[in-house]
């Protein structure tokens, strides 16, 4: 049985995946030896649904700015279209010979191909959504680096005004994403690192305030204040980098999250 990466994809494809698995078992146990009924209508319905999905997919690929999505979608279209053609060929062959064994195998291959092709297509699109969250996270990472140049209270106020909405936006998106994942370890990783960031953001601001105050009072204790601030920036950057890494993992990367 395939493992689906997100709950949306799982909800769509898991019931069909289970049915196809049962079909494969029946075929392997040679329990499907009776004459096959005319499958023209259900096969035509699949073909029409494939055409509609591919059309929406092509519209998406044409309208997106995501170059990776543009590249990755066409092979997924080919996958579902070839599988649909395979089903049509099998149905025609079975109409001529309702006992044809190669045609039955072709039917099963076609059904499996529709399943994996649809999964690939949805995964391409899902990864594009992930890249949008990654862009937000990289923005936060860049902004964290700015904290090292803040040396007066006025700049600190501006920094906090900009960091807070960026951090909240990322936390919301990452939390929503964690709820979508079927892989518990990946979901927990995202939640833990987001919680770390929520906890350390006020600590960062506090450390920056101490650094700014030290500078204002003549600079005694500057090194310690700077080291403390940099340590917190390092911890927060690590959390954001981990979020970026985990966001890009798929269910196949089970061992990546140690």
């Amino acid at each position: 049985m395939p493992v689906f990466h997100t709950k949306t994809i799982e909800a769509i494809l898991d019931p069909v995946a289970q049915q196809v698995s049962q079909l494969v078992i029946l075929h392997e146990e040679a329990q499907d030896g009776n004459a096959m009924p005319d499958l023209s209508n259900p096969v035509m319905a699949v073909s029409a649904a494939v055409q509609n999905l591919v059309k929406v997919g092509k519209d998406t690929a044409n309208s997106t700015d995501d170059k990776i999505l543009k590249q990755e979608m066409p092979p997924a279209f080919t996958g579902v279209e070839e599988s649909s053609n395979k089903l049509a060929e099998a149905a025609m062959e079975l109409k001529r010979d309702p006992y044809s064994s190669p045609a039955r195998k072709k039917l099963i291959d076609g059904a499996r191909g529709i399943l994996s092709g649809t999964s690939d297509l949805l995964l391409c699109f899902d990864q594009s959504e992930v890249r949008k969250i990654v862009r937000v996270a990289k923005g936060v990472l860049e902004y964290l680096a700015v904290s090292e140049v803040v040396e007066c209270l006025e700049d600190l106020v501006t920094f906090v005004k900009n960091l807070s909405p960026g951090m909240a936006n990322m936390a919301n998106k990452v939390t929503s994403r964690s709820k979508e994942l079927t892989h518990t370890a990946h979901a927990n990783g995202l939640i833990n690192h987001t919680e770390n960031l929520k906890r350390t953001t006020p600590v960062l601001v506090s450390s920056m305030k101490i650094f700014v105050t030290v500078l204002k009072k003549g600079g005694a204790g500057r090194d310690e204040a700077q080291q403390n601030r940099n340590y917190i920036i390092g911890c927060m950057s690590h959390d954001v980098n981990e979020i970026i890494r985990i966001l890009q993992l798929t269910s196949a990367d089970d061992d990546e999250l140690s």
């Binding site: 049962q22 329990q31 009776n34 096959m36 699949v46 929406v56 309208s63 649809t118 949805l122």
Partner: peptide
């Protein structure tokens, strides 16, 4: 487009499910 992709994928999954049922119906007779 995300909603439309998901909708069309659901419709394809339903059509595939009906096809598999038609094949299985024969096999289970």
């Amino acid at each position: 487009n995300a909603g439309e992709m998901v909708k069309q994928a659901k419709l394809l999954a339903m059509a595939t499910s009906q096809l598999v049922n038609a094949i299985k119906g024969e096999a289970e007779d």
